[in-house]
């Protein structure tokens, strides 16, 4: 009995030792030399593996960063300037900075604005519905509402608003990785410059059809009238293919364009609503940030402010800068 136990223990230990020795030598022999900085760089990356940088994962991006000589074309949108600065430090290079971006959904075609003209009866994914036909409304540019973008978001920064049937971006969670932009078959989502207090003014429509057609299919479509182009003091608005576009780089958030839009397709978000703006109140508004944005997006067209107010806000904005 005792000898059985003894033999068992000895054999097992012997096998263990032998295996350990083999492993040790194999590990020595087949060791792959890797730049230790790759590990260091990977350590500071966000480890989200979202693919926002264009590489399949953070590890691959770290390899690319270490192997390349400059940061050209290499940027982690999720970690932003902070992470890139750390990476620069590890690699002993000059850090590059990029203005932070945020995803913006450029369609406001809620059921109230855009009448339903058919019933889609296929798999619940925008990709298939888009390939099949215009979607449940007659607007061939508008959001289909099956949430491919929400599905693609790895940061829980998007959700479908059940009332409007449109996706909503939660600004403070959005890392501008671009997954939703990629997922949307209609290119409705755009990455735009992030403004202080998450304020934004943009044309919430990408319909390039003639005004009458666009208007017939959706009450809040851009009809390409050009009123906003005329009123913009900074040449930030261009009109192409019956569609106005506000260049986020040139826009100074003066809020002159939104009131003149006949179809309310230019949205102002996270701006104070009150006529007289007191500094303290403004801060409170900003704190309510994301919650309020949904409200604005939902009611959308009801947003109208007088020109006087926007002027005042423009001043306060420029002073912020």
């Amino acid at each position: 009995m005792n000898s059985t136990i003894l033999i068992t223990v000895i054999t097992l230990s012997a096998i263990g030792m032998a295996a350990a020795l083999i492993l040790y030598f194999v590990a020595r022999k087949f060791r792959v030399h890797e730049d230790p900085r790759i590990d260091e760089v990977e350590e500071v990356l966000p480890a989200a593996n979202c693919g926002g940088c264009g590489y399949p994962g953070c590890r691959n991006f770290a390899e690319a960063l270490v192997k390349s000589d400059s940061f050209e074309g290499l940027f982690c949108p999720v970690g932003g300037n902070e992470v890139m600065a750390k990476v620069a430090e590890i690699l002993g290079r000059e850090a590059v900075t990029q203005a932070p971006l945020v995803a913006v959904v450029r369609c406001n075609g809620s059921p109230g604005h855009r009448p339903k003209t058919s019933v889609y009866d296929g798999p619940v994914t925008c990709a298939i519905a888009h390939a099949l036909y215009t979607g449940e409304s007659d607007c061939p540019y508008g959001c289909l509402g099956y949430g491919d973008c929400v599905e693609a978001c790895t940061f829980d920064a998007m959700y479908m608003d059940p009332k409007t049937n449109l996706p909503v971006v939660i600004d403070n969670k959005c890392t501008a990785c671009g997954a939703c932009v990629e997922a949307c078959p209609r290119d409705i989502i755009e990455l735009r410059k992030k403004n202080p207090k998450d304020r934004k003014i943009f044309v919430c429509c990408i319909n390039e059809e003639k005004g009458a057609v666009a208007r017939k299919n959706c009450k809040v479509a851009c009809i390409g009238c050009g009123a906003c182009v005329k009123v913009c003091p900074f040449d930030a608005i261009t009109l192409e293919n019956n569609l106005a576009y506000i260049d986020a780089e040139k826009c100074r958030l003066c809020r002159k364009c939104s009131p003149v839009c006949p179809t309310n397709s230019i949205l102002e978000i996270n701006f104070p609503e009150k006529k007289m703006v007191v500094k303290g109140q403004e801060k409170k508004d900003a704190k309510e940030g994301s919650g309020k944005e949904e409200k604005v997006a939902a009611s959308g067209s009801e947003q109208k402010e007088s020109g006087e107010e926007s002027k005042k806000d423009k001043e306060s904005n420029s002073s912020n800068k």
Binding site: Y133, T134, G135, D138, P140, E209, V213
Partner: peptide, 10 residues
Amino acid sequence: EEVMDAGGYR
């Protein structure tokens, strides 16, 4: 002008 085709696209 444009008319709708079978897919609804003009």
